[in-house]
Design a protein around this nucleic acid. Sequence first.
RNA 1: GCCGGCGUAACUCAGUUGGCAGAGUAGCUGAUUCGUAAUCAGCAAGUCAGCAGUUCGAUUCUGCUCGUCGGCUCCA
Length: 641
Amino acid sequence: MDNRASVNITLPDNSIKTFESFPTGVEIARSISEGFAKNCVAMEIGEKLLDLTKQIKEDSAVKFITTKDKEALSILRHSAAHVMAEAVQNLYPDAALTIGPVVEDGFYYDIDMKPISEEDFPAIEEEINKIIKAKQTFERKVVTKDEALNIFKDNPYKKELINELVDQEISLYQQGGFIDLCRGPHIPNTGMIKGIKLMKTSGAYWRADQSKAQLQRLYGTAFFDKKDLSAYLYLIEEAKKRDHRKLGTKLDLYSFHQEAAGMPFFHAKGMQMWNVLLEYWREEHKKAGYVETKTPVMLSRHLWEQSGHWENYRENMYTSVVDNEEYAIKPMNCPGGMLLYKTGSYSYRDLPLRAGEIGLVHRHEMSGALSGLFRVRAFHQDDAHIFMTPDQIESEILGVLQLVNRIYSCFGLGFHLELSTRPKKSIGSDAQWEEATNGLKNALNKYGKDYVINEGDGAFYGPKIDIHIKDALGRTWQCGTVQLDMALPERFDLSYKGADNEKHRPIMIHRVIYGSIERFFGILVEHFAGRFPLWLTPVQAVILPINDDLAPYAHDVSAKLSDYGIRCEVDTRTESLKKKIRDAQVNYTPLIITIGDKERESATLSVRTLDGNVKMGLTMEQFIDPVVKHIKGRGLEDIVL
RNA sequence: GCCGGCGUAACUCAGUUGGCAGAGUAGCUGAUUCGUAAUCAGCAAGUCAGCAGUUCGAUUCUGCUCGUCGGCUCCA
């Protein structure tokens, strides 16, 4: 091969560099500057990510991926997974590697080896650091299938993977004495990994199949900068402090008991917040033209057979026998909603019909899946079923999206939208799917917010829009969902009379906004870290008489404030004022009112807010007016008096 | 359900290499009646998750069960 042929490299700024021999990515980067080259991780040529060590043999447009680019972190972490695998292999020579992908917050590697625990981490991390210090280079090698199979002859998992590769190059990466099957690309050398940490272990099955071998999954994360790792660990610490399971106990909101695993108990204060959440929900839904309905918790097996749940959702359903008839406790509200619809007869003029239901559902989740309020076996959905004509799809979906926006904004939660389209296994005709999916798309476009498309991720009965909220720590949670259902109206033979005096099949939407109220509650606890906005917090004001003689007057004040809808408590414990203030403060009571003789004589209040500021001599009006206004406006900011 | 960790007072946690179980907070009693982030003293509180086994003796070791945590998995 002629090695002296010149190559023209076009850079993103359209400048062209000519090389007299085939340059590697590193060489091109160095020709720009040494400093730049140091920050380069990989390069992109025609949408393909390549190693910097790759030699370029024809004229190309090259874009360098530097440590600042989004893709860079994935490449680094993928390389970090190899380093971790090398370390494990060094310490446990019998370990058989399987796969090691990058995930959202880091990477993992599934390894067939003896169970290990976090106690083994320090040794592995030490080994990892040795490898990083050695600045081992990643070398790519292309091999034939036979060569690959021979290299991994002792590893059945890798052999399985290799045998699945058809019509594609089989590449291996070697760093130090360690070789792994890998598509690449990788960072130039292990020294680029500046912050790496093993996070946790767990069991995982080969190919996520319970009947296959149980592997050890080792999770880790890695960054280009030690500071980024510290920031990440700090975030995890913050999240731990906000853990709604701990805060729920501390703030006396809810608890969990062995006697009903996965079914939360709400305390008086938790229930107070719950009611405020629903009050707000009802207000918004009434404005949006919804009616509220309620269906039973337990319904006959026949209904579930008709709806298809008996066939498809049976293992998650609680059942019971009553008078020799089998019943199921509802895991979803829709079949009951179907019966409600069928009690009436509808004309096209009655549609859309928007029927909300705060429905208590039970689902038998696997014991290992339970987690605080986030994953429970009994929960309430803020469900609604909208029945409509096909040409109302767009406007109804748009209406739901606008409602979603209003409600989430009220909590200061951002969100993004994802559209899921027809899956392989589905019911309904092509025309129906097209009409439904276009309806969702048009509504999304009208709504005007960017959205992600998940091809083939829809339910088998219709396309859907999932709404993912983003909390104060930047974590995302799927809460709301809007699903079109083309199956249930069919199964229940729903109809309405059209303008043509013919029977037509209505289209149906299932939608939730809070999703699971329990889960949303937990998310709010973590989002606000227990320090709720005034309108939401269970106890808005605590009144502290400075001595026992003032207790009756404190109760008078409390009664007066309660008349204005301000939720108060009087703290008459025989504790020092300082102590009472401290307790109110650590429980994030937004308004701390002290009552002394001065206040009684002048009929004023002195109010301490959570920022530690104290406003003295406020008349009742000067206090009540802004507080009531703040509550009514559902303000998110701390109140300033 | 599976893999691994954990389960000690209402809460947060210490402890026992197998020999009568410990602290702080909360609670109760008494004193203190206090002006903006913890007044003092005393008391009470636990079959050490449950059941079985090993042992002279088990909260400690073993097995099973339940709960819980991190994952896996599932999410019509």
